[in-house]
C-alpha cells in the first residue's frame, strides 16, 4: 500500500522522550548499580589473580576482562549473564505499557507512523544500553590503568571497543525479544515472563537441546558411538542461540590466541597452551559470522514485532 509522508517523522521526539525516561527511571538506576558493583568486584578479583601470576603478557589489559578468580565469574562471564537481563528489563513493557496507561491512542492520533514509535523506543533503549556499557568499559579500563599502571595498547583498545559493540548488539537481541513479547502480550507480567523463559532456555538449556536434536538427527551407532556429523550438528544448533554467538565472538576478540571457534569455553581456554596470537583484523574476520548473526537476529525479531504492531487495533 502506498503511504505518503516519511516513516521517520517524530522519530527523534520519541527517542529523546524514551531515553530521558530510561535514564531517570529507578529501574535503570538499580540495574546500573547492580552492574557496577558486580563488575568492579569481578575486575578487582581478576587484578588480584594477575598480580600473583605476574606474567609478561602482551595482552595484560584484555585479561582484565577474561580472568576469573574461582568461584567468582570473570567479567565477561558475568556480562554474558547480566546483559540479557538488562536488555529484557528495558524492553518487556515498551509497547504494552502504552496500552495499559491508555496513552497509545493519543500517541498514534498524532501525525506519526507506528514505525517511528517502535523504532524510536528501540533506539532509545539501545542508546541507554550503549551508554551504560560504554561507561562500564571506561571504568574497567580506568581501573586497569590505575592498578596495573600500564596503558593499554592500541590493539587492546580496538579489541575492547569491538567487544563493546558486540555486547551492545547482544543486548539489542534481548531487547528485541522483550519488545516483541511486549507487543504480542498486552500484560507486562506475561511478556516479562515470556522473555525470561526464553532467556532461560538459551542460557541454561540450549546446550542440552542441541545435544538432543543432534542425537535424534544423527543417532549414535551402538558399536562405533556418535557419528562425526553429530558434533557438527550440535554445534550448528547451539549457534542458533544469541548467547553462543556472543560468547564465541567475545572469545575471538578478547583472546587473540583463538584460531578457531567451536565448543570451547573460557575455562578451557585459560589452561591451554595457545599458538601465537592472531592479528586484530584476522580475529575480526574470525568472529564476523557471529557478529552478523547477532545483527540478523535483531533485525528478524524487530521485523516480527513491527508486523504484529502494525496490524494491532489501537483501542487504548
Amino acid at each position: 500500500m502506498r503511504r505518503s509522508g516519511s516513516p521517520w517523522t517524530g522519530l527523534w521526539t520519541v527517542v529523546s522522550k524514551e531515553a530521558a525516561d530510561h535514564i531517570t527511571s529507578a529501574r535503570m538506576l538499580m540495574l546500573q548499580l547492580l552492574i557496577l558493583f558486580t563488575a568492579v568486584g569481578a575486575v578487582y578479583a581478576a587484578i588480584g589473580v594477575m598480580k600473583t601470576v605476574a606474567t609478561q603478557d602482551q595482552f595484560l589489559f584484555l585479561r582484565l576482562f577474561t580472568i576469573a578468580r574461582e568461584p567468582f565469574p570473570s567479567f565477561v562471564n558475568f556480562l554474558g549473564f547480566v546483559v540479557p537481563i538488562v536488555g529484557i528489563a528495558l524492553g518487556f513493557d515498551a509497547v504494552n505499557s502504552e496500552y495499559q496507561r491508555r496513552t497509545m491512542s493519543r500517541l498514534l492520533a498524532q501525525p506519526i507512523y507506528r514505525d517511528a514509535l517502535v523504532f524510536g523506543k528501540f533506539l532509545a533503549a539501545l542508546l541507554t544500553l550503549g551508554l551504560t556499557f560504554f561507561a562500564l568499559w571506561l571504568l574497567v579500563t580506568g581501573m586497569g590503568l590505575l592498578i596495573l599502571g600500564v596503558p593499554p595498547s592500541g590493539e587492546e583498545v580496538g579489541r575492547g571497543l569491538s567487544f563493546l559493540v558486540v555486547t551492545i548488539a547482544y543486548a539489542g537481541v534481548w531487547l528485541a525479544v522483550a519488545m516483541m513479547f511486549s507487543t504480542v502480550f498486552r500484560n507486562a507480567a506475561t511478556s516479562a515472563l515470556a522473555s525470561l523463559a526464553t532467556w532461560l532456555l538459551f542460557s541454561v538449556f540450549w546446550n542440552i537441546v542441541a545435544g538432543i536434536v543432534a542425537q535424534m538427527a544423527a543417532p549414535s551407532h551402538p558399536l562405533f558411538g556418535p557419528p562425526p556429523e553429530q558434533a557438527d550438528l550440535a554445534q550448528w544448533v547451539t549457534r542458533l542461540s544469541p548467547n553462543t554467538l556472543w560468547t564465541e565472538a567475545t572469545i575471538g576478540l578478547l583472546s587473540p590466541e583463538t584460531r578457531a571457534l567451536g565448543r570451547v569455553f573460557f575455562e578451557q581456554l585459560q589452561g591451554m597452551a595457545m599458538g601465537s596470537p592472531l592479528p586484530f583484523g584476522q580475529s575480526l574476520l574470525l568472529v564476523w559470522p557471529q557478529i552478523s548473526g547477532l545483527i540478523a537476529a535483531m533485525i528478524v525479531l524487530f521485523t516480527i514485532l513491527y508486523l504484529v504492531f502494525q496490524r494491532q487495533e489501537v483501542r487504548a
Partner: peptide
C-alpha cells in the same frame, strides 16, 4: 485515512475514551 494518515492526523484531533497520560 488509510492512504494519507499523516495529513488526516495533522488536521484531526482525537480524545479517546478514558484518556490516559504519563502519570
Amino acid at each position: 485515512p488509510t492512504q494519507d494518515p499523516l495529513e488526516v492526523k495533522r488536521r484531526v484531533a482525537y480524545m479517546p475514551d478514558s484518556v490516559g497520560f504519563y502519570d
